[in-house]
Simulated assay, not measured.
Amino acid sequence: MPPAGTTAVSTRGLRKTYRHRGKQVVAVGGLDLDVPRGGVHGFLGPNGAGKTTTIRMLLGLVRPDSGTVRVLDRPVPEALPEVVSRVGAIVESPKFFPAFSGRRNLALLADAIGTPPPRVDRVLADVGLADRADSPFRTYSLGMKQRLAIAGTLLKDPELVIFDEPTNGLDPAGIHEVRQTMRSLADAGKTVLVSSHILAEVQQVADTVSIVTRGRLVTSGRVADLLAQAGAGEARVGVADPARAAEVLAARGWAVRPAGDGALQVSGAPDLAEVTRALADAGLYLRELVPARADLEQVFLALTGTTPTGTTPAGPAGQQQGRPAPHGRRARA
């Protein structure tokens, strides 16, 4: 268990099962999760991996079968009344009055939770909606509607903000808007926990991540560290005689495969300088050596053997070899 005060969220042995068609389904199976304070933490995995169920347990909406949950150093659900005002969350689609302006909708919400009225204009500015504050909600784009929902969670100035699949259904512009909003919240000192199955999107904004599949943690850490590990010793290699180069490199125990345009993709080398030396010793000289840039999907694939959508990568014929996601590809965990 990390020292007190260093995590915004910590779970140990968290487990939740459901009955489905007469069978017991494990939604979350012994999850150990640590979300450090400050920054954006991505909670990543395919649909059906247990992300939403976990978030509902963090918020006291679902009671775990076993295990412990601590949010802002307090046990949940026992101390939920103490922390609820310090946590903001969007778990489902936001509900607002279509004919009312963004400002009016937030003013009603602020009145309901006892937030001073001046706070409304502040949060509208924080999410970049000040210039559309008086427009009816029905005229907002999907991205703007999501940002208004985020503004609603900020009315009580929470320390921890939780988003469950916040970019679902958004176009690229909306995704960019929400991503910028999450980053600005983290830069302002808040902790942002965002669950998603779109790893490439979260990679652009997250400082740290936890990757789960089938309700269990498979890895966690700083994004930069995970990417560095995944891309270590992998590179695109170009030489005049790729067939001979492939033999030389494979003889060293490294994985070699065609990379198009006569180049090779080499992985497993402890140091790319070793690739250069091995080829030079065989009288082969490089015309291209480009280190691979890993992404979180590659990390996920290496750890689980599936993509975040729950399928295996394309086989030799370029066809997807389907494999169902955990728990029958439910839309949400």
Rank of each mutant, 00 (worst) to 15 (best):
S135C: 10
R86I: 03
E82A: 12
I90G: 06
V83H: 05
S135P: 08
D131Q: 14
V62F: 03
G128F: 06
N47A: 07
D126R: 15
V71N: 02
E82M: 01
G67T: 05
S66K: 14
R122G: 09
D111L: 11
S101M: 07
K51H: 07
T53M: 05
R63G: 00
S66A: 15
S85Y: 12
D126T: 15
S101I: 12
A89D: 05
I113E: 10
S135V: 13
R74K: 13
A107Q: 15
A125S: 14
V84K: 15
S66E: 15
L58G: 02
T115M: 12
L61S: 04
L129N: 14
P77E: 09
L108K: 00
P94D: 02
A89M: 11
V91P: 03
L80C: 06
R86P: 01
T54P: 00
M57L: 09
V120M: 11
P81N: 06
K95R: 15
P98Q: 08
A49I: 10
F96K: 06
L124T: 13
A107V: 07
P77H: 12
L80A: 10
K95V: 14
D134C: 05
F97H: 14
S85L: 14
R104A: 15
R103S: 01
D121R: 13
P81Y: 07
D126P: 05
G102E: 13
G50C: 11
D111C: 07
P136C: 09
V83M: 08
T54Q: 07
S101Y: 10
G60F: 02
L108V: 12
K95S: 14
P136W: 04
K95D: 14
N47S: 11
A79W: 07
V123Q: 04
N47C: 01
S135Y: 12
E92N: 04
D111V: 00
R103G: 03
A107K: 11
G48L: 10
E92S: 08
D111K: 14
